[in-house]
Every structure is written in C-alpha cells, then in structure tokens.
C-alpha cells in the first residue's frame, strides 16, 4: 500500500530534478557548441565594434596601435571636423547619388528581367537565369579592370554608341560622367541577385487575381501596377535593403576604375574611410565609419517604413 501511494508523488519529483539537471546539462553543452563561434565573435567583432566607437572619440593614430590607452579623448571633435571637411561632404553626396540612382535602376532592370522570364519563357529559362546572374559571382576588382577599358574614350561603349550616332564622353575622366558610369557597372553587376529574389517573389502573385483582372479588361501595365507590384512589396523591400547595404559601402569599383577621381567625383564614404585609414588617422576614420553605419541603419529603417506591407 505504502509503495502505491508513494509512487505517484515520487515520480514527478524525480522527473523534475531529472529535467532540471538535464536542462543545466543542455545549457552547458549548448554553449560548448557555440564556444568557437563566440570566441571568434568576441575577438573579431565585439571588441572591434566597441573599440571603434571608443576610437571615434579619440585622436587615435596608426602610431598608437601598441599603446591604445595613451590616446587623448577629444569628445565629438572628430565628428564636427568630419562634417566640416569638404572631402567628407563630397563623399556623402557621391554615396547618396550612387544609392539614389543606382538602387531604383538596379531594381527596375532586375524586375523587368524577372517579369520577362516569368511570362511564358519555358525554353532556355535556365540559360537566361544563369547568364544574367553570372556578373554577380565575379570579383568586382577583376571585372572593374575590364570595365575600365570598356569605358575609355575610344572603348567598346563609345564604339557601340557611335553606331547610333552618339559621340560618347571619356566616361571615367569626366567629373559629370564618372559616377554614372560606375552606377551602370553596378547595375550590371548586381541585377542578377535581385532577379533571382524577384523571380521567387513572383511565384506568390496569385494567378487567379491576375486572370480576374484580365477578364475585367485590365491591361498588362495596369495588372503590373495594381496586382503584381503590391503583392511583391515584401520582396521589393528585401531587395532594396540588401542592395542598399552594399551600395552604401561601394568602394572597390572606384578604387580600381577611378581612384576616387576625377576631382573626387567618385570618392565614396568607404573610400574616404579607407584613405583616412591609409593616412593613419584611425580615430577620424572610425568616426566616419560610424556615420556610414548610421546611414545604413537609417536607410534600412526608412525602407521598412515606405515599403512595409500595409495590412
């Protein structure tokens, strides 16, 4: 009798300690699984991110690397100097132009390709998809070398323009055309990623609604604007956020193709940061990188607000 009454109490109690012990054991093991990642994460990300913030309030220079605590605290001086620096302001403007022109252009091209591929293209669909995506996998540095030659005064692009009677400029050596030329190359390099994302998104556009629209006499353009694009909102958002993080950091194209010139017309924020870093002005460069970080965060936030699905 005693055993039968005791058993129902003993089992839950036992179970509780077992599960608690098991959970503690699981916690121990789980953090063990995360340990290598966490170690790398702390040394190569947390420490740098925190110290770069700290660095941006100091006059840290390359000569201070071995004695980082010997630098002086300068408060917001680096930031105020930054916004008074015409070079930095120029880099802000260039980067903004690059983003404002480049992102919508890339999205429009990618969306056009995705819609074309989604509309009754069965044959060679894979060939098209692979072909349009190929620029994405190439090294920007290597491909910038190629574009640098294509964009010369008597290069391929101007030869092509010459066929239709346009006398093209010396793209990379003209302050008005250098940045647009880099934007064209970025559209070419990045459209593939967005095309794939948009193609996936287009699968979610309800066919019945498109058909109903068609029955009601809505033309192709009307169906695109009123049905396809609204359904595609989350996909467009994802695409624009992904793209803007990359576009805001543009550097390699300018480094290889223009060196930031002519007359700083292609100097991006990243390029400015890189230059300050090369001059050994680490604190100043760190302050500039936080401005860039803030810009990326703000732009992402803005995009979420503008493109957020309206339920």
């Amino acid at each position: 009798m005693a055993t039968t009454t005791k058993a129902p109490h003993a089992v839950p109690a036992d179970h509780l300690t077992v599960s608690r012990r098991r959970r503690r054991h699981q916690t121990f093991v789980a953090w063990g699984f995360a340990a290598p990642f966490m170690a790398l994460f702390v040394v190569f990300l947390v420490v740098p991110v925190v110290s770069s913030l700290a660095m941006s309030f100091t006059d840290f220079r390359s000569s201070d690397v071995q004695t980082p605590l010997a630098v002086s605290f300068v408060g917001l001086e680096q930031y105020t100097a930054l916004f008074a620096d015409p070079l930095f302001r120029r880099s802000l403007l260039n980067t903004a132009l690059y983003v404002v022109l480049g992102i919508p252009l890339t999205m429009a091209v990618a969306l056009t390709l995705a819609i074309a591929l989604n509309n009754g293209i069965g044959r060679f669909r894979t060939v098209f998809r692979v072909g349009f995506y190929t620029p994405v996998v190439t090294s920007i540095v290597a491909i910038s070398v190629v574009w640098r030659f294509i964009l010369t005064d008597d290069g391929l692009l101007n030869a092509a323009l010459g066929l239709v009677g346009i006398n093209g400029p010396d793209w990379l050596n003209d302050t008005t055309t250098a940045l647009p030329a880099l934007i064209v190359m970025s559209v070419w390099r990045n459209m593939g990623t967005l095309m794939i994302i948009f193609l996936a998104g287009l699968q979610n556009v309800p066919r019945e609604v498109l058909e109903a629209g068609e029955v009601d006499g809505a033309g192709a353009w009307r169906r695109l604007v009123s049905i396809t694009l609204p359904t595609l909102r989350p996909t467009l958002l994802l695409g624009s956020v992904l793209l803007s993080v990359g576009f805001l950091q543009f550097f390699e194209e300018a480094y290889v193709m223009t060196g930031g010139g002519p007359l700083n017309s292609t100097l991006s924020i990243s390029y400015f940061i890189f230059n300050q870093f090369s001059f050994g002005r680490y604190g100043y460069a760190a302050a500039a990188s936080y401005v860039l970080f803030l810009a990326i965060a703000l732009l992402s936030l803005l995009q979420f607000r503008v493109l957020r699905t309206q339920d």
Partner: peptide, 8 residues
C-alpha cells in the same frame, strides 16, 4: 557592415 569594423 564590414566597413565599420575594418579599422578597429
């Protein structure tokens, strides 16, 4: 972004 971390 990596541009923020490369200096530190």
């Amino acid at each position: 972004p990596s541009t923020v971390t490369f200096i530190p």
